[in-house]
């Protein structure tokens, strides 16, 4: 197999696993929402099953990075850390929801419960920071930093606009934890910008 066909095949594998993962997550969420198979607070725990598809997705992404010549030891460590933190996040959120909805909890206990999904997200933020510190390839690091700046700009812009829309009662309040998913979405946009600019 030539390098080009191997790279194309690796890209197809990544696309397949992305569709499989997103489809399984949405399918499971839809099933939980429309049926009463699993009681509400336990629904989040069930989502751990389709999340297992992240493992072959990350493996396929790493194979693609090897084929396209942008693999690095720091990126592999980053992938492993993000994967581990993501599973902890869903498990922590599920545990917090089950404990919170199951009984009347006091404010200090509720504050402790909120740490269950929060700490893994701190882990995700730490993993992003470590990647930039550990990446020894300056070009790959510069691309990530550039994408991170796009993400930060997007988050600030969206938060400001949404905030004023809320002030003038156009849209409802959004929980502050939405900041990390919005930033991650911005990171994806930033990587797309890198691609379009040919950087």
């Amino acid at each position: 197999m030539t390098d080009d066909t191997a790279a194309a095949s690796a890209k197809r594998a990544v696309t397949f696993w992305i569709f499989a993962f997103v489809g399984a997550m949405f399918g499971t969420a839809l099933l939980l929402r429309t049926t009463a198979i699993v009681p509400a607070p336990w629904g989040m725990a069930v989502l751990i099953a389709p999340m297992l598809l992240l493992i072959p997705l990350v493996r396929a992404a790493e194979a693609m990075q090897r084929q396209t010549g942008c693999d690095s030891a720091a990126a592999v460590r980053y992938n492993r850390r993000i994967l581990f933190a993501s599973f902890l996040y869903v498990a922590g959120l599920a545990a917090a929801l089950i404990l919170f909805k199951g009984q009347d909890v006091s404010k200090p206990v509720a504050a402790l419960l909120s740490l269950l999904p929060t700490l893994p997200v701190f882990g995700i933020i730490w993993a992003m920071g470590r990647y930039i510190v550990e990446e020894s390839d300056e070009y790959l690091r510069a691309r990530t930093v550039s994408a991170a700046l796009v993400a930060t700009g997007l988050l600030l812009a969206v938060a400001t606009f949404w905030g004023f829309l809320t002030t003038f009662e156009v849209v409802p309040n959004v929980p502050m934890w939405a900041a990390v998913p919005v930033w991650c979405f911005g990171l994806g946009i930033g990587q797309l910008v890198n691609k379009v600019r040919g950087a």
């Binding site: 396209t68 010549g69 942008c70 693999d71 690095s72 020894s136 390839d137 300056e138 070009y139 790959l140 510069a142 040919g198 950087a199």
Partner: peptide
């Protein structure tokens, strides 16, 4: 490009980006 990347201890994509003028090395 891979040979050069290994000798410089950088990714092949870095070599490609430098060669094509998309990235100026430090």
């Amino acid at each position: 490009q891979q040979d050069l990347a290994e000798r410089l201890e950088v990714s092949r994509q870095s070599v490609n980006a430098i060669e094509t003028g998309k990235y100026d090395p430090s």
